[in-house]
Simulated assay, not measured.
Amino acid sequence: MDDHAPPLPATQFGALPFRETRNGEVEFLLITSRGSGQWIIPKGKPIPNLTPPETAAREAFEEAGILGEVDPHPIGRFAYMKDQGQPNAQFIPAVEVFAMRVTQQLTLWPEMGQRSMVWLTPEQALHAIEIDALRKIVRRFAKTFAKGA
């Protein structure tokens, strides 16, 4: 083992929260990161005894106060710089993303008040998200949703 190489962070798991509007369009829920304040999706490190989709659902509950149905199959992966611009910034090599149909938005949750959140149309979400690979996941999901798949 190379003593000089830092350990690679574990893969994280995230939820792409969505809902269907009355006119059949899709909207996405984005939250701000606590470090950089950029618009992202709920995500976090693996949680012992939970599957990746269950971990994504738990993160969505803790960070955004939402409950819903998480697809067991990932819809994409992206990498990002955690706490970008901060002295302790860390590269996260992979966030596996699971689609989450939101069925309930709670009024109280663990990280309430620590982040902003907003429901956006696909176009608005694509404009707000800075991480290119996450934008691609959102764009692809929105196209698939529009086709009724």
Score class of each variant (00 low, 15 high):
residue 67 L to N: 06
residue 82 K to S: 12
residue 22 R to C: 02
residue 20 E to V: 13
residue 34 R to Y: 07
residue 53 P to T: 13
residue 53 P to V: 10
residue 37 G to C: 13
residue 58 R to N: 10
residue 102 V to A: 08
residue 102 V to M: 02
residue 74 P to T: 00
residue 47 I to K: 14
residue 66 I to P: 10
residue 45 K to E: 14
residue 39 W to D: 05
residue 51 T to C: 07
residue 91 F to K: 05
residue 110 P to A: 00
residue 9 P to Y: 07
residue 72 P to S: 10
residue 9 P to W: 09
residue 101 R to V: 03
residue 33 S to W: 01
residue 81 M to T: 13
residue 61 F to V: 00
residue 57 A to R: 13
residue 94 A to N: 04
residue 70 V to E: 03
residue 78 F to W: 09
residue 13 F to E: 02
residue 97 V to G: 02
residue 52 P to G: 10
residue 28 F to K: 06
residue 39 W to K: 06
residue 37 G to I: 12
residue 7 P to K: 13
residue 65 G to D: 00
residue 78 F to D: 01
residue 15 A to Y: 06
residue 59 E to M: 14
residue 90 Q to A: 01
residue 26 V to S: 02
residue 95 V to T: 11
residue 28 F to P: 01
residue 51 T to W: 03
residue 21 T to D: 08
residue 62 E to F: 13
residue 34 R to S: 11
residue 88 N to K: 08
residue 39 W to T: 06
residue 80 Y to K: 05
residue 108 L to W: 12
residue 97 V to E: 01
residue 59 E to F: 14
residue 109 W to R: 03
residue 32 T to S: 07
residue 111 E to Y: 11
residue 108 L to G: 09
residue 10 A to N: 12
residue 45 K to A: 15
residue 71 D to V: 08
residue 82 K to N: 10
residue 81 M to F: 09
residue 42 P to K: 02
residue 76 G to P: 06
residue 92 I to K: 03
residue 12 Q to F: 12
residue 39 W to S: 04
residue 20 E to Y: 14
residue 58 R to A: 15
residue 50 L to V: 06
residue 27 E to Q: 15
residue 7 P to D: 09
residue 104 Q to D: 09
residue 22 R to L: 14
residue 57 A to P: 01
residue 14 G to A: 11
residue 22 R to N: 12
residue 13 F to V: 10
residue 87 P to L: 03
residue 40 I to D: 08
residue 36 S to W: 05
residue 14 G to V: 09
residue 41 I to P: 02
residue 108 L to R: 15
residue 64 A to I: 13
residue 37 G to V: 14
residue 24 G to P: 04
residue 59 E to P: 03
residue 82 K to W: 06
residue 43 K to W: 03
